[in-house]
Amino acid sequence: MKQKSSVLRLAVTLLLITGVVAAALAGINSLTASRIYKNKQLKSWEAIQKVLPEGAIISEETEITDSSGIAKTLYTSTKGYAVEVVPNGFGGAITMLVGISFEGKVLGIAVVSQTETAGLGAVVAADNQAGETFREQFVGLSGVLAVTKDGGDIDSVTGATISSRAVVEGVNAALACVADLEKVE
């Protein structure tokens, strides 16, 4: 190890190590890729089921870009739309799905992933009473929504105005996105 190695030897050794590691990774990747993809599909599928009425069958999945950059994916189903939106909360991005009927009214919202403060902002995604009460407020609404602090009708989660605002922002983006869609048609 002490002797001076030639540049060529260094390069070849490193190349070999890198090559072997890359080959190993490629192998593992090909083994797991389909399963990882299925896991992710399943997860978003479960969330979509939550925000659309029972028996909805998804017919189309389109990547979308809106002016705010919040809306990401639009799922068209037989009973309404589901829009994946990613607004910015207090502790980073909140990924959520908003179900919207063909009439442009909110059917339901579900949070897929978030990194909000435990016990405060995280309540917007929680499976408890407070979280459900917060999310159910949105059902049946349309237009541009706002939290009570900003003069709207949505009661924010106690002590978590910013997280609540982010959710409202996401719902607004989803509503706007579906409204645009109806206009075009």
Binding site: M1, K2, S5, R9, L10, T13, L14, I17, T18, V21, A22, A24, L25, I28, N29, T32, I36
Partner: peptide, 25 residues
């Protein structure tokens, strides 16, 4: 086998490989 001049680079490649494998699994 690993020459001392490039040992850190080689270690990191090996470690990163294992980490990615664990991550994928």
């Amino acid at each position: 086998v690993i020459p001392s001049q490039i040992r850190i680079a080689a270690y990191i490649v090996i470690i990163a490989g294992f980490v990615t494998i664990v991550d994928l699994l």
